[in-house]
Design a protein around this nucleic acid. Structure first.
Lengths: 254, 254
DNA sequence: CCAGTAGTTTGATCCGGATCAAACTTTGGC
DNA sequence: GCCAAAGTTTGATCCGGATCAAACTACTGG
């Protein structure tokens, strides 16, 4: 739902086809869910809504009469009875608010002040059925979010805390690179506890593991939200270590 | 990608809209990705392929020139350098083989003998652009798979082995209920090691935890692949325990 | 600028599941 | 039906991260 794919990706695609790939290459524009034209076409039927930091965008179980497209700010989509368990972080241009049975399945809350388009489902729906290109782009976006979610699951499948966090940082970095933001430094808009809820670690473990990475000179925090990777090789080694190690040997074979 | 949603769901939906909801209610037919008509329309452009148990359907990085729709059997989609880490189990009617940059990102392998439709991308693509209903159904299917993947991530976010396995069994059960298969007993087509790779536990932990559940009379195995839930209340208690517990308290607040 | 609170670090202890290892059981081929 | 290989159970040990708890730091609003 949120993070960009590795930097060697050119855009979301389904069935190996993607109009943006060539678009992006030709125009050199940043990858976007909706083109400017499309965005303004949608703007006609959309209203702009604002949420304060910490404010609920919607709650699980609410009547799902609109979907959202973030213009600026960061939000989280979360679920679980306890309200913990972050399903996705939502960044500008992310589309969210998919429903099931007409109700939102997750809740969403602004982590920073958020501005977003609010698209009433009824209007968007009729648009969709008439606008093949838009529909196609929705497919692309869904593929992207599916991959994102699979990445998240992949991250959670890793057992070691450092690998989980390194993977998370990599996701953040790639997102920012894809958007053309300041490379070199990584911006971490969410707090330690949110990170923990996303990567499946306790708040304490997140802090401790960051501390350990800093102590080993792999990363360096400028302040609580900005860091840079000071030892790329070591960083990549941590990431690589995650895969290819778990030797699940079965039965007796010497 | 694979499991069905909870039984109170009527079908996949995007934006709160789903043509199958009414269809299903009217006809009482089982929920399907493709209607019979659609399936046969696709069959024209599809070839039927068979895979032996353990055979690769495709490998990560292979040229992605086709997608698949399982007719019978069970497969797994997996990734990770080590080839461990199962992303999804694939059951009949599941659509898989989405690509990125024209290459498969995951690998897929048959767990049982598998029969499947193989749909060449090129043909399907032109179909898609002309067939609005098909395109719409692809959207629905993608939403379903997205939710599935989010469920998987949710499962992996849980730390306790018994909750993970109970959740997994619940997914299997719901899938089988949705397909109208034998309720009462749950069929587990994959081996312990595959389960471990999906739920993020070691092979040993899977076996031990199953053992413990059996010892507590929560479930009972008829044989290695068939089990039933003998104490529903206890089972549900395990599931419920997963949520609402993780008290991530921050700072000092007495 | 200060107080109060939200957020973060750090310490100590404990436990669940990984890991290593060996026996046991089922399956499939001949 | 027998053997080998595949798959499963079970035991012992160990370690990473959860959990409990307290101190520290950075914001925020008055």
């Amino acid at each position: 739902m949120a993070f960009a794919e590795p930097s060697d990706r050119k855009g979301p695609s389904i069935l190996g086809v993607d109009p943006w790939v060539s678009d992006t290459r030709k125009t050199g524009k940043k990858r976007e869910l909706l083109s400017e034209a499309e965005r303004s076409r949608l703007a006609v039927i959309a209203s702009i809504v604002r949420f304060k930091k910490g404010e609920d965008i919607y709650r699980a179980g609410d009547r799902a009469d609109a979907i959202f497209n973030i213009i600026s700010g960061v939000a989280k989509s979360y679920s679980g009875k306890g309200g913990d368990r972050i399903v996705a972080f939502l960044f500008p241009n992310d589309l969210f608010g998919l429903s099931e049975e007409g109700r939102y399945t997750n809740a969403a809350r602004a982590l920073t002040p958020v501005t977003a388009y609010r698209l009433p489902v009824s209007v968007l729906r009729s648009r969709l059925s008439r606008d093949a290109l838009l529909e196609y782009h929705v497919i692309c976006k869904l593929c992207e979010e599916l991959r994102q979610s699979q990445r998240h699951a992949f991250l959670l499948g890793e057992r070691r805390a450092d690998v989980r966090l390194a993977t998370f940082l990599q996701m953040l970095e790639q997102l920012q690179v894809a958007k053309g933001d300041t490379a070199g430094e990584i911006y971490v808009p969410m707090d330690r506890s949110d990170i923990g809820e996303y990567v499946g670690l306790s708040l304490a473990a997140v802090s401790r593991t960051f501390g350990s990475l800093v102590r080993h000179n792999v990363i360096k925090f400028r302040d609580r939200r900005w860091l840079k990777i000071t030892d790329r090789a070591a960083f990549d080694r941590i990431l690589a270590d995650g895969a290819g190690r778990r030797t699940v040997r079965r039965g007796r074979n010497p």
